[in-house]
Simulated scan of single mutants.
Amino acid sequence: MEEENVILVNEADEPIGLMPKMEAHEKALLHRAFSVFVMNDKGETMLQQRAKDKYHSPLLWTNTCCSHQREGESNIEAGKRRLMEEMGFSTELTELFSFVYKAPFDNGLTEHEFDHVMIGTYNAVPNINPEEVANWKWMHPEEIKTDISKNPEQYTAWFKIIFERFYDHLMQNISTS
């Protein structure tokens, strides 16, 4: 199987080239990515535990799914594709915000991403892909925030960064609606 390319971007999210995913992570080059948060009607967020054979952050908890857009693919198309590949379901997604972050890992790789954060709604049981996902659960955002502060080692580096912004976004929109 051929390694997937990521879209290298500048700070304005303008594409500047393609590069194999591992090479971009080894060189810590800025590339386009997305993070999907799925919530249910009870206000809970679906978390996934990464599969034990993932090349980084195995068995850590993270957002519903995340990955990299393919060339010519919109953010929403990419989010829907990966949601189906990892969690086995489809739902409408809305892009909430985007930002740049950098998260180094113990294995020498670095996530340096222009991340597009999306949200969707789903109320059923996912059909997880065991090659991607070890487990899943629903948690209220307040519970996630508390658990991250008590057990930060159980969560992916990027999720701790992204969740802070996601949580702030949720709280601002709850207080203004």
Rank of each mutant, 00 (worst) to 15 (best):
C65Y: 08
N127A: 08
I161D: 06
T45H: 01
F114Y: 15
P20A: 05
D147Q: 09
D168E: 13
G72A: 08
N63R: 08
R32F: 00
L170S: 01
I119P: 00
N173D: 04
N63C: 09
E23K: 15
S67F: 01
S175R: 12
K54L: 13
H56S: 14
E95W: 02
E77Q: 15
P141I: 02
K27L: 15
E92K: 06
C66Y: 12
E164V: 11
F166L: 09
N107T: 04
V133P: 03
T110E: 01
D168V: 08
E73Y: 06
I161Y: 02
Q172D: 10
T146K: 12
M139S: 05
L83D: 01
E23I: 13
S175M: 09
V125N: 01
I16Y: 01
S74D: 11
N75G: 08
I162R: 10
P104Q: 07
N5C: 11
F89R: 00
N123A: 01
K145P: 00
H140L: 07
D147L: 13
E95Y: 01
K54M: 15
I174M: 11
E2K: 13
H68E: 12
N127K: 05
H68P: 00
E92Q: 09
N40K: 10
F159I: 02
K27P: 02
C65E: 12
N40D: 13
F163Y: 15
V6R: 03
H140W: 04
M171Q: 13
Q48Y: 00
K145V: 01
P15L: 03
R165G: 00
F97S: 07
L59C: 07
T94L: 07
N5E: 14
Q154R: 12
M84D: 09
H169N: 11
L170Y: 06
N123W: 02
L8Y: 07
F37D: 02
S35Q: 07
F166R: 03
L83W: 14
I7K: 12
Y101R: 10
M171W: 01
R32T: 14
H25Y: 11
E95N: 09
C66W: 13
S74C: 10
K21F: 10
T91I: 09
M139E: 06
K52I: 10
V9Y: 08
G120P: 03
D115P: 05
S90P: 00
M1C: 04
V6I: 14
E86S: 11
V38E: 06
N135M: 05
E73S: 07
E143G: 04
P141T: 04
D13A: 15
D106A: 15
R70Q: 14
A33P: 05
R81C: 07
H116N: 14
